[in-house]
Design a protein around this nucleic acid. Structure first.
Lengths: 127, 127
DNA sequence: CAAGAAATACGAATTTTTTCGTTGACTATA
DNA sequence: TATAGTCAACGAAAAAATTCGTATTTCTTG
């Protein structure tokens, strides 16, 4: 027994997970169509990926019907924390501050979002 | 001719880049020793990686001496912006705010760092 | 200068990830 | 119940990333 090791999902796996988070439980076809908006991908390719992800326990599927329905087995929150944590260690020597600075300079952030961030900071400071 | 495509460095490549940023220009041996602190890696493996990176233009080397000295060809800043940008698009639908929130919750940030971030936000708000 | 140590070059093997072709099963419908 | 359409299973190929063995070159130093 024993599976574990916080191996991060591969690129494609992550792409599929994101689609499932954004669109909710889906069939392979639905996921594949979404994939193709970004990059041409064959149906069987997506299918295979999702089968592998099922084996790995990254997604679960309901195969009681003809059309199988897939959904994430790991929460968006958890996965995001993991990939961010990975990146943090790998590239920013564990400094969240550096990463935040980069994120803020890499992309425009609206005033509304900025204020959300400020609130979050205030909350952290309270403790 | 023709180089293009903002292909992000692979995992191992990133690891090597980080070592070069942190330790400055280094020989293969130095890099390899650093690598081995985290994960056992053969000397020739590291060497090969660095040769490939040289071909790709990710690092440059001074081979005027017997021991070649390698250094990053791309700045830490640029590379970090790129990997963060990648992650942003891939996992956070382009929302820097979401990424920042995750980063802040994934890791403890000191008061000093928090105030740096606040300053950065203030600067962005000015414009 | 000879012998060993330390590097690099090179090619190939291995592993991991991604892609896809083919086959057979199920479904709806006319 | 034949037929066309949709789907999943499976295995294998292709591509990408990683690893390593061996040969060769350069340096050191006695």
């Amino acid at each position: 027994m024993a599976r574990h090791k916080t191996a991060s999902p591969t690129n494609k796996e992550l792409a599929i997970l994101c689609i499932l988070w954004n669109n909710g439980p889906s069939t392979v076809r639905q996921v594949n169509e979404e994939m193709n908006k970004r990059q041409r991908t064959g149906y069987t390719t997506t299918l295979k990926l999702m089968q592998i992800m099922t084996e790995k326990g990254i997604v679960v599927r309901d195969d009681s019907k003809f059309q199988h329905i897939y959904k994430p087995a790991i929460s968006e929150e958890k996965t995001q924390n993991q990939v961010v944590g990975d990146l943090l260690e790998k590239v920013f020597s564990g400094s969240a501050e550096k990463l935040v600075m980069r994120a803020l300079s890499a992309k425009k952030v609206s005033a509304k979002e900025l204020s959300k961030i400020k609130k979050m900071i205030a909350k952290i400071e309270e403790k």
